[in-house]
Each structure stands twice: as structure tokens, then as C-alpha cells.
Simulated scan of single mutants.
Amino acid sequence: MHMRRLRIAITKVLAIIFMLPFIYISFRKHFYMNHEDEGVDVDVRENNNTWINHLCPKYSIINTVNKTLNWRPLTPNTIFFTETSCALKFSPKKACAVESAAHHHPHRPVLLLVTAPAILHPQPLLQIVEDLENVELAYLDLDQVFSEPPLKSWHIQRLWLYNEEFTSVFISDAARAELLRRFGGTYLDLDVLTLRPLPDLQPYLGRYNTDMVNNHVLSFPPRHPFIQVGIMTKPEVHVDLQLYVFQ
């Protein structure tokens, strides 16, 4: 009897020990989801762009001293990046991408568009990027970006929320295409390092390998037929991620 009780007790202890890592991971994930941006909160009470609450649910309504950003449209000569992950901080990889583009194109404006209406400030890496003469940070206001049909209704209905895990990807792909359609310019992903000046002639797409091009590097004049056709088909966001138009 005593041996049986001992085996049961040992089994329970082993079960608890086995579950501890999962309990810790679950607690850590829950804690950081709710507290990782404490002290760097963005005040969205005065912001009428209700899409922020859908795309960036971790933003709180607490006033803090952050740097507020404003929307600014592109020009056909602009090199631009989009940050749609709602991050308030800037990583070294992203800083290198922006700096390399600015370095090789000193006479072209370089615009970093972010969905965060305010960012944690100061940040050493971001300060370095901002101090570059031809670099500017601006607010990626989705109401401004998707203010024309056909993507206006797609945005108003929040169809980009169909798969929340990849929402920022859908927004990034749609935003870059619509910005190129309306304003023209050169788009680069935030993991693209520029090693030499980009071609002056448009249009062009970046080559992923010998058999494939993708949308990580795009350069088009305003209202180019290629982009127009892509936008008119509207982004088809599917839950199974098998197809959506801008990838």
C-alpha cells in the first residue's frame, strides 16, 4: 500500500515538473503580450483612425512622452520602407537597411513609414537613422493610403483581418502596392541591404533567384498598368494562406 502511494506521489511530482516549462512559457507569453510595451504606450484616444485598435491591439491609451509622427505622401523619386508590425522600437537590421539605401542615394529622399502613430524616443539606432540628411520618418496612416477605390472598401471592411496571424503581412503588401500605384517610387523591404545605387530607370522588380521575382524590391512610376491591374483584382486574403494577390 505504501509503495503504491509512493508511486502515485512520484508520478504526480514528475507530472508537475514536466508541466512547469509549459506553464512558464504560457505565463511568459501572456505577461509579455500585456506588458512588453509598458512605459512606451501610445495615446490613441484622440486618434480617429480606428484601424489602429485592430492592427495594433497592444497600444494602450496612456499618455507618454513619445515622438509623434505625421502622414506624408510620397514623390516618384522617393525610396520608401514600411513598418507594419506596430513595433515601437527599431532593430539593428532595419536600421542597416535604411542607412544603406540613404548612403547610396544621397540625392533621393528616403522615407520610413510606420503604423505606430508614435514611437519610443529617444532610441540610439533610430536617432542615427533620423540624423541622416535624406531620411525622414512618417506615419503610415492606412486611412490615407487606402482612400481610393477599390482598396478603400477592402480597408473599411477590415478584410485584412481575416487571418490575424498574418495581418501585418497583408497590410504591408497592400500598402506598398497602393502607394506605388498612386504616387510611384521605389519600395524596399526592411531586410534589404543596398550595396550600390539602384537603377534610375523604372519600372523594375527585384529578383529573388534565377527563377523568381518577388515584391521585396519594387520601383514604378505612378499609375503604372502593372500595378493598376494588381490593385484592381483586390487582395484576396484567404485563411489558409494559399493565395493572396500581392505576394
Score class of each variant (00 low, 15 high):
31 F>C: 01
23 I>H: 07
30 H>M: 07
26 S>V: 04
18 F>G: 00
45 R>V: 04
24 Y>Q: 06
41 D>V: 04
25 I>L: 13
36 E>F: 13
35 H>I: 00
25 I>F: 10
43 D>K: 01
18 F>R: 03
27 F>A: 14
27 F>W: 15
43 D>R: 01
35 H>L: 00
27 F>K: 10
20 L>T: 15
46 E>Q: 08
33 M>P: 00
35 H>P: 02
48 N>I: 13
19 M>F: 15
48 N>M: 13
46 E>F: 07
30 H>G: 03
37 D>G: 06
23 I>Q: 06
19 M>S: 14
39 G>A: 09
36 E>L: 09
17 I>D: 03
47 N>W: 07
17 I>P: 04
41 D>W: 05
21 P>F: 03
24 Y>G: 02
38 E>N: 09
31 F>K: 01
31 F>A: 02
47 N>D: 14
25 I>H: 14
40 V>A: 07
21 P>R: 00
19 M>C: 14
24 Y>R: 13
36 E>M: 06
34 N>M: 10
17 I>G: 05
38 E>F: 10
39 G>M: 10
26 S>Q: 13
20 L>C: 14
45 R>Q: 05
28 R>F: 12
30 H>R: 09
40 V>T: 08
39 G>H: 05
24 Y>C: 05
38 E>W: 11
24 Y>L: 09
46 E>W: 06
38 E>R: 11
43 D>M: 01
33 M>F: 08
44 V>E: 11
20 L>E: 05
31 F>G: 00
47 N>I: 15
48 N>V: 12
22 F>Y: 02
36 E>I: 06
34 N>C: 05
21 P>V: 01
47 N>K: 10
41 D>S: 11
30 H>K: 10
26 S>A: 14
31 F>M: 03
41 D>H: 07
24 Y>E: 02
33 M>H: 09
42 V>E: 03
47 N>H: 11
25 I>D: 14
43 D>Q: 02
26 S>N: 12
31 F>N: 02
27 F>T: 11
24 Y>V: 10
25 I>A: 12
18 F>L: 04
45 R>H: 05
35 H>Y: 08
45 R>L: 10
34 N>D: 06
39 G>S: 06
20 L>H: 05
22 F>G: 00
32 Y>S: 05
21 P>L: 02
41 D>N: 12
38 E>P: 01
47 N>R: 11
19 M>A: 15
20 L>A: 08
21 P>D: 04
30 H>L: 11
47 N>L: 14
